[in-house]
Amino acid sequence: MTILEATNPVDTAETAAKDTIKMKEADLNEAATESDHKTVGDCFVENPKFSVRDANVYYGDKQAVFDVSLDIGENEVIAMIGPSGCGKSTFLRCLNRMNDTIDICRVEGKIELDGMDIYDSRLDVVPLRARVGMVFQKPNPFPKSIYDNVAYGPKIHGLVSRRVDLDEIVETSLRRAGLWDEVKDRLNQPGTGLSGGQQQRLCIARTIAVSPEVILMDEPCSALDPIATARIEELIAELSENFTICIVTHSMQQAARVSKRTAYFHMGKLMEVNETQKVFTNPDHELTEAYITGRFG
């Protein structure tokens, strides 16, 4: 028996539960709903890729995102974390107008990509979504061959005219997604026949095949095992040399591992944005602290 075991009162957990006043979730939520809410940390960067100002998002009468202002730097990996329903995915989907597909969804405020207002009514969303690609939680390859999955985007966007060019794009994209060696001998087999991790990398290959500038990832690893997750994270690190990446994740360790900056959302509000190292060692906001240390969920 160690000294610690010998000296530790048996019922520490019980007494701790009984005798202390809990930091009530309601109190914390009250802190979050203050009307003069202001995001702490560094929201803005020089020469941002994305510049979001006072974004409000509504689903019908219900407001899901409140006054979010945030810059996302070029070739930066930014992670968005927060409890379920905090608006982080909704916010992410605003960045390539994915919310347009939901009828009752309304987006207010200014969202600019390289200084261009992406909610301009004259803007065509198809090229926008080519510039700002997206990877979803569940790998969703088309029910087509591995080759066609990657070739589809470049074809419909008219990026290539010759078969050899298309071949090259498919190979480069699969290589960049770290999948080439595993699939090069079976490009004509269906993409749905791959393992979960491979399917997700196929979706990433499909996304980067149209040469986007930004990749949005909505919990890209939550359906994957730790090894497939590690591959994707490694991939994120490599891709960040050429792409701006915004990742929504429920895994705080993942946010800590892959991102340069971390944004913490709470009840639709952006509470804190800071360098990831700072967020995970000494966050500025008490709600960030409470969330990342598991004091409420």
């Binding site: 000294i3 610690l4 000296t7 530790n8 520490t12 957990a13 019980e14 701790a16 539960a17 202390t20 809990k22 930091m23 409470a290 240390t293 598991g294 004091r295 409420f296 969920g297």
Partner: peptide, 17 residues
């Protein structure tokens, strides 16, 4: 004040020790 009581107990144990 962690959700996990055991975690509370573990940290408290460190402090006491």
């Amino acid at each position: 004040q962690h959700i996990s009581q055991q975690y509370n107990a573990d940290l408290e144990k460190l402090r006491t020790a």
